[in-house]
Structure formats: structure tokens, C-alpha cells
Design a protein around this nucleic acid. Structure first.
Lengths: 344, 344
DNA sequence: TTCACCTATGAAAACGTTTACATTCCGGCC
DNA sequence: GGCCGGAATGTAAACGTTTTCATAGGTGAA
């Protein structure tokens, strides 16, 4: 059915070996015959069978990305970064989503194993035993946002702790004293690190105060509920730090809906700097994470390991964050500020 | 190096044929030996080599998606829809982006061809000759948002024309009389269809008026510029219909920045209903496109064709749109409206 | 007991490549 | 002219599966 290398060989009146050599740019071949063969191949619209190729070369030129989800601005940015780096290196990208489910992730991992040269895995679950048990030892793997003992795998993390610490300090520095946090889902590594940063910052500046923390799960909805809950409480905070931007947005709507002015009555900050955070009103102060960079770096690390498998590898790396101050926590910025925002 | 079917066979003291049968759930095999083989395979952490498998079975169980970009809320939603349907059918997803560039798209298409069972291609360029020349005849393909003669390929389109027509009529129905359009990039199929819908609606209700159209390229930036341009013009419109939401948002900021009240002074509408449009202030009236559904439908169509290749196929299909009215064009909605929005 | 038949298993070919090795061809040197 | 060497090309094995066909082993009937 499909045209194979044999068809090209027959049509060009050469052996399959010559066709292979012509296509792969081997030397020791007349420029004349090469041109001829290439011409025939193009005429027949021949494309090599990747399976057969990977079988003998033991390389698929494909890497698999297993992410918690493919939905939302965070993952969109991440995939873009990965794709950019992959295409620069001539690698193909096989995407898969786990939805945080161990069973689904295991199945995806098994299915991926036989068809890729390496793996990019984001598994924000604190419990990393699943990874230890399931990840193939033999397949080069780079983990992202994953709490894992430094032993086994190469890991790339965000500086969740540092970002949260810096943001909390920033809020304290602006004069906010009763700061509440809307934390992320239980068992999520990023969430727990951000909470830890928050706690440490509070502990250092107000050792005797126990900061208020309400529960969320990274969705806007949960941020909305958290906002309502905070307003209903006895000691209303004068600033709220949400563990991600989506929750901050939800919280913002809860506050505004209740007639609370942001930032005049209550200041608000988020984490991630997803595009939306620039568009809400007031624009959201947040911790900028270079999401696309995270993806790019992870892929480049993986690609380097594929190229020279036995070079010594730095095992764990942390990508810095940076605070982006917008109107939601006290900067009086008019609408112009958004357009001057340097990420714009 | 990697453990193959032979290793399993040796270890289990059976032939490779039996291992293959055990793994693929063949009948005519003792439950006892099957269990034994499966046990050994699991113990050795055997995973089949997808390349070898695809070589003999002539199926890769992978489909390739070539999109203009992987960035932004639109594509994020689209990929999610595709992924959902793919995983439901046990298909893997190879993603690739063309950035609207013919060379890049051609390279991606060639690279994809040898490794997938089918292709999902979104190519919003009006000039479809590239596709005709490059797309492999032999590979099942479903096109999205593509202007192509009905002859060759299966196509899934949005009802861009109908959506724009309906939205323009809605604006007219609300009493807006001087409606301007911010159109999309030259040569983009979706953009030109939306413009056509706009023109037709205007022509039917105000035959003698020539509606004002300013140029944009689907980015927020261009929407901002378009907004400024409209304000600078002699005849200020009292409503603006942007060809997509990102431009509408940019336009909104331009208007607000100049002290124009939305919707009191100028009404505003967009197209796509990306998540951001609910978060801007005022929330944006727009044409809802079920983006994830588009991806899902496209993949399902492709999967069906893979399953029975010679069944008669409906060649072109159009997915309906629906108008979502929010505060930006005259509905006096308080902040609650957002949370009552049924897509929320 | 013998035969036939059915079921469980094994042997080997086939899939489309790449590449090590073998062969041919050609020119130059003695 | 014969020989050597290098360049161009061909031959065939190997990669890891699935599947067709063959074989062995067992069971039941005559």
C-alpha cells in the first residue's frame, strides 16, 4: 500500500542501501546518484516508516510529556515552552494527561514507555512513592514540580517557597498586618511549599501571631468560597495571599461582591502570573513564574541527557520567581500600568 | 539492554508466540500459562516496543495534530478536547505547531506522516493550495477551520458566518446603529467569514450605510490600536464588534483609557468566549464557540474513519455558535452575573 | 487399540529500515 | 600489463513484534 524504501530502490534502479544512504546524507556517494534517488523519492512521495526506523536505530526522536492536565493557562504556557525547545532540537512531542490519578498516570506511563526516548513528568503530588515505583529506571526522565528524594531522578522545581516568602514579606512591608492565606489542595507539593514560605515569613516578623489559613484547591470556585469564608470570620484580614492566581481571582470577586474594596479595604496577591491576572480589575499583584521557561528548561535538560547519556547531570534545580506588583495590593496604578507591564 | 519479548519468553520457558498471545488476550491458551506469562512480564517490567509493533500491525495508535500554535486559551481548550476524545479511544496524541508558516507546516507534516495513523490539521489560512499539495492522500485526515474545496478532505468548521451575523443583528436589535468591526488578519479564513457575516447583517438592516471596518490581527495589541483608531475617527461608532475576544479586550482597554464608558458610551462584543472574556470589566458579550467540542468532534470523526476506512463519510460539517450576552453591550449586570454564567 | 479431531504451543516468515561487510569498478603505479 | 587501493554500490543480517502454519499432546469413539 504505502510506498516503501524498496519501491524507491526499484524505481531508481539502485539498492535499498543506496536509497537509505542518499536520504540520510551519507558521504561516499556520487552527487549524481544522490540527486537521482532524492528525485525519485520525492516523486513517489516516499516518507520513511518511523517504526521501522526506531526499531533498528533504537531512537524514536520523540519525547513524552505527562502532565496533570492540559487545560488552563498554566499548562498552555508549559506546553508551549516544551514544544518550542523540542522543535528546535528536532524532537516530537507526545502529550498525555494524568488528572492527578495514579491509575491513569500509570497507564499513560506504560503506554508512553515503548514509544519515546525520554520522559517529562509533572507530578505535583506530595506522595512521590508512585513515581519511584512506576517510572522506568532505564528511560531518561526529567521531573517537574515534584517532591522527590534527590537520589533517583533529575528534577526541575519552581522556587515556590522563596516566592511565597518574598510575597508575604512584601505584603508585610507594605504595612499589612493581618494577612490570611488561601492555600492550595492538600497533598500538593507546590501548595505546601507556598504555604511553608508564607508561614516562615509571618513567623519571622510576627512571631506570636498565628496567621489565618483557609483551604482551597487551586480552582477559582474555591477561591470564591475562601473569600466569603474570610469575610464571615471574626477577625477580618486586611490582606489575602492566594496560593495561585485562579483562586485570587475568585477571591477578588467574592470580596467585591460583598462591597469590599480591593485594595483599599483588603489587599490581594496571587501566584503564577497567568495572563488573566493582568486583566482583572484591579490587576493582580502576583509571583511571576516563567512557566514557558520551565517547560523549555526541562526539555533541554532531557535532550542534553539523550545526547550524551553518561555525562554527569545536575540532579535538582530550582527556577527563581519574581514579584510583580500591580494594583491589587496597594499600588495606585491607573489603567496605563497594564500596558507598561513589561511582560506585556 | 531493554527487555524484549524474547527475554520474557526465555524466562517463562515458552515461545515468543505464546507471550504475544498472552499479552494480547488471545483465546486458546490455558488460563494457567497466561497467568504465568503475565506474571513474568510484569516482574521483568516488560513493555512492548511500539515501533516493532507498528511495523507489523500497520497501526501506530497515534494521531498527529498540527495546529497553528499551542499558545493561548483557544488552543489550550482545543487540545484538551482532542486529548479527552483520544484517551477515551486509546489513541496517543502527537502535537505539532505550524505558526502559520508554510515551510514549518510542510516539515511537520512530513515528519508526522511516518508515525501516525491519522492527522488533525487546523490551517486557518485562506489559501488552501498548500494543503492540497502537501497533505498525503493516503493518510486519513480531518481539517478544522479550513477553507477547502469540498472535494478532497473531511472538514469541521465553526459557523463563523452565522455567529457574526447573529451577533451583529443582536447589536442592531439593541439599538446600536453605528457599529464598527475590528476584523482579523488578512488571509485568515475564520476572520474573513466573520467579516462577511458582519457585512451581510449590516447590509440587510442598513443597506445604504457603509460600515466602518478597522484592521486587526487577533492579538490584544492590535485590538488596542484599533480602539484608539476608532476613537480618533470622525464618526465615532456607538458599538464595536471585534472578530475575536483578545482584540475585544484590547479595544476595551483603549476605550476605558480614553475615558469612554463601556457599554454606556460604546458597546462592545467579541468572538470565541475564551475564559478571559468573563473576567474583564465589564464582562464581554461574545459568540460562544465550543472549542473543546470542536477538538473532540474532529478526533472522533477521525477515529471513526480509522475504524472503518471505507464507510461513507460526511465530508463537511459546521459547528454552531451561540451568543452570550454580558454587560459589555448593554445588559446591566452586576458582578453576580458572572457567577450565574452557565459556562462557569 | 487405533484413529480422528481438537486444543495448546512452537517455528518461522514478514514488516521497513540501517549498516557491516562484500563486491565491483576504476585509475595509477610499478 | 598486472596489481593495488580506494570509492561507489550491493547483499544480507538485525531490530522486536504478530501471525500463519505446523506440530505435539490429549480425549473420545469405534
Amino acid at each position: 500500500m504505502a510506498v516503501t524504501i524498496k519501491d524507491v530502490a526499484r524505481e531508481a534502479r539502485v539498492s535499498v542501501a543506496s536509497v537509505s544512504r542518499a536520504l540520510n546524507g551519507h558521504s561516499s556517494m556520487t552527487e549524481r546518484t544522490r540527486g537521482h534517488i532524492l528525485g525519485v523519492a520525492a516523486r513517489l512521495r516516499y516518507v520513511p516508516h518511523a517504526g521501522a526506523r526506531s526499531l533498528i536505530m533504537r531512537r524514536t526522536h520523540t519525547i513524552g510529556a505527562l502532565l496533570p492536565d492540559l487545560h488552563g493557562e498554566f499548562f498552555s504556557e508549559l506546553i508551549r515552552g516544551i514544544d518550542l525547545a523540542a522543535r528546535a532540537r528536532g524532537l516530537h512531542l507526545l502529550v498525555s494527561s494524568s488528572h492527578g490519578d495514579v491509575g491513569e498516570a500509570g497507564a499513560a506511563l506504560r503506554a508512553l514507555q515503548g514509544r519515546v526516548d525520554g520522559l517529562l513528568v509533572m507530578w505535583p503530588n506530595v506522595d512521590a512513592s508512585f513515581l519511584r515505583e512506576t517510572l522506568p529506571e532505564t528511560l531518561p526522565t526529567v521531573l517537574m514540580n515534584t517532591s522527590v528524594e534527590k537520589a533517583a531522578f533529575s528534577t526541575l522545581n519552581l522556587d515556590n517557597y522563596g516566592g511565597a516568602l518574598a510575597m508575604t514579606r512584601h505584603l508585610i512591608g507594605r504595612g499589612y498586618r493581618r494577612i490570611a492565606m488561601v492555600c492550595g489542595p492538600e497533598g500538593n507539593f507546590d501548595a505546601s511549599e507556598r504555604l511553608r514560605g508564607f508561614h516562615d515569613a509571618i513567623a519571622r516578623s510576627q512571631p506570636r501571631v498565628e496567621a489565618q489559613v483557609v483551604h482551597g484547591d487551586f480552582t477559582e470556585e474555591s477561591g470564591y468560597r475562601a473569600g466569603k469564608q474570610l469575610l464571615a470570620g471574626a477577625k477580618r484580614p486586611n490582606a489575602v495571599f492566594a496560593a495561585n492566581d485562579m483562586m485570587a481571582v475568585g477571591c477578588m470577586y467574592a470580596l467585591i461582591e460583598s462591597g469590599v474594596r480591593v485594595p483599599d479595604d483588603i489587599g490581594l496577591a496571587g501566584f503564577d502570573d497567568i495572563p488573566i491576572s493582568r486583566y482583572v480589575n484591579p490587576p493582580l499583584t502576583t509571583v511571576r513564574v516563567r512557566i514557558a521557561d520551565l517547560g523549555r528548561s526541562a526539555l533541554e535538560r532531557l535532550a542534553m541527557r539523550l545526547e550524551n547519556p553518561d555525562a554527569a547531570q545536575p540532579l535538582a534545580e530550582t527556577l527563581g520567581c519574581e514579584i510583580v506588583v500591580r494594583a491589587s495590593c496597594g499600588v495606585t496604578a491607573d489603567i496605563h500600568a497594564r500596558h507598561n507591564d513589561k511582560t506585556h
